[in-house]
Design a binder for these strands. Sequence first.
DNA 1: ATACGATGCGCAAACGTTTTTACATTCACT
DNA 2: AGTGAATGTAAAAACGTTTGCGCATCGTAT
Lengths: 344, 344
Amino acid sequence: MSKGGRKTIKDVAAAAGVSIGTASRALNRRGRVSETTVARVTSAAQRLGYQPDAIAQSLRLKSTMVVGMLVTDLSNPFFAGVIRAAERRLQESGYALLVGNTDNDLTREQQLIDLFRRRRVDGLILGPCEAENTGMIGDLEAADMPVICYDRDFDEGLSGLHVAHRKAAYDATRHLLNLGHERIALLSSSIKLSPGRERIAGYRQALEERGLPFREDLIRAHQSSMEFVKSEAYSLMSIRPAPTAFISLGTRMLAGTLEGLRDNGWRVPEDVSVLTVGDTDLARLYVPAISTVTWDLNSVGENLAELMLRRLAPETGSEPRRIMIPTKLIDRGSCARPGRLIGD
Amino acid sequence: MSKGGRKTIKDVAAAAGVSIGTASRALNRRGRVSETTVARVTSAAQRLGYQPDAIAQSLRLKSTMVVGMLVTDLSNPFFAGVIRAAERRLQESGYALLVGNTDNDLTREQQLIDLFRRRRVDGLILGPCEAENTGMIGDLEAADMPVICYDRDFDEGLSGLHVAHRKAAYDATRHLLNLGHERIALLSSSIKLSPGRERIAGYRQALEERGLPFREDLIRAHQSSMEFVKSEAYSLMSIRPAPTAFISLGTRMLAGTLEGLRDNGWRVPEDVSVLTVGDTDLARLYVPAISTVTWDLNSVGENLAELMLRRLAPETGSEPRRIMIPTKLIDRGSCARPGRLIGD
DNA sequence: ATACGATGCGCAAACGTTTTTACATTCACT
DNA sequence: AGTGAATGTAAAAACGTTTGCGCATCGTAT
């Protein structure tokens, strides 16, 4: 036995009375080995508790069986759910998932990508990040690093997945328009990220179909708004004539929005209708329950994993694929016809 | 240049006109190298965009600079926050964090541990898991795998971290006792996990200090209760005389508890007081806002990382340490003196 | 009996590093 | 000028695998 207590294939070979190469072939049932030696070797391996060293295998086989994934914030429940599902699916196929947080910072993203390349991950799943650089992705693919994009712009010829944020925002806006709202405030995630851009596009489209003006002053979609939702909500509330509905389209934005409304004494839905994104506990149990447009995080994770696995096993046909995850609107008590006018 | 586009140290050495070994020493500023060759080599490396291969380094150096972490569910916000903080701290020291989900299943936990060992992680952070087996942890340490435990039983001589769940439950219970409650229902995470056991112990201690009986029928702490909180709440509500307060001590239990209460028309806090764990959006914004006992996830993650780093750098003194993370009670509108009696 | 394909196995190279050892050169000092 | 130490470099071993190649051995067919 080698020192350190860890058994190597050398120990197994010695115990089985064969050469290292034969032991390897026996364990992997590869090449020409007799059944009797296979039995001897596997039993020796069993007895010694031998586990092949993944590092050495990676070096030799040029494959680490690890895929990396970059998100802005692992503790964001939207990402956490996706990661969980993706990890499960990948693990079924023998891959591990290494996650990195970019904090929505471009430099950090690049650092992590470099780090992951050094670590020789077999593939990379890239979540949204500010100022997305589609060229960089092309470079990665050119350097033989499979990339799957998630809610992020990417060029033709690559595979990726988008949640239908545009349709979601479109549906949400239309829903409120149908109830008779005409001044609809929009709190959205940053315009620097694909989901933010898509949401605003959907919102705009719904308005324009009704011949209503697209008013910049009714929109808040800065980088910073994540932390300052409440004050953004305040500033929207001070517009006159006041908006009669709020669409709150960011992960942790609903809480700030509701706080802002409550602090000013606006009642939901009598004074203002509210619509949000994601079916959180807060949305379900708030009084009134908040209407929301939502989608299946599990499906996102599984599809991302599936896309990656397809890219990693080229024989399954590797023409690039784009997947669009549908959203659905759940209507609850927080949306109603516009009521009394506020502040006039 | 080697084929495949990836530059190796061989390429750098060739470009700098030195041997491989010298190139290595120059890049790592290790051993005897002249300043002029250091300059030549580093500039060549720069020019070629050389990045050392972490896999080859790991094989040679017997260190992967990866630490593994096992939790029951990555998408549980309590864990996600901890993971995020731990990852950040570890990354500062050059380590990556590989996370695995046990789904609170013992077999899966063992599989993942084996997997991580094959992958040669440098250390392992173990979160709670059912039927914790402290012997297994000793075996790992004996096989030279540093282990840090988190909210999980472990033997003397090891390092680990606990959140003060017992104190938290004790404080919560006392708070309600002080308001005059005598029948306090407890919904807790499973008794198979350390946090669940601790919580029940704290609850019991507070009762006994007041000379009140510890009634099993007021407690729900099964494995299954996570998914069926609502029906568990129903069954607690049917006890006569009815409990006048609910302590809901599980990650995603507050929503189910509130739903159950609301469905039966029990008002908070007029008919029943509610106290929960974790400062979630739901707790803060529910009407009334829910009192809660909470702690700092960031601190948990950072301390876990710190403990691990200390174990990994033995020179810093490696006597085992136990860290206890304090909790604090935030009182809000959901707790009041017991009111009218229900169901009598 | 000779030739020949098939079969099982050992040997050695390779993956990309780091580190040890040994050798050659320079420099200072007697 | 000759010895010693100090210095810089090249060569080679090692980490634990997988795999191509060659060499026996054996059975079968000519």
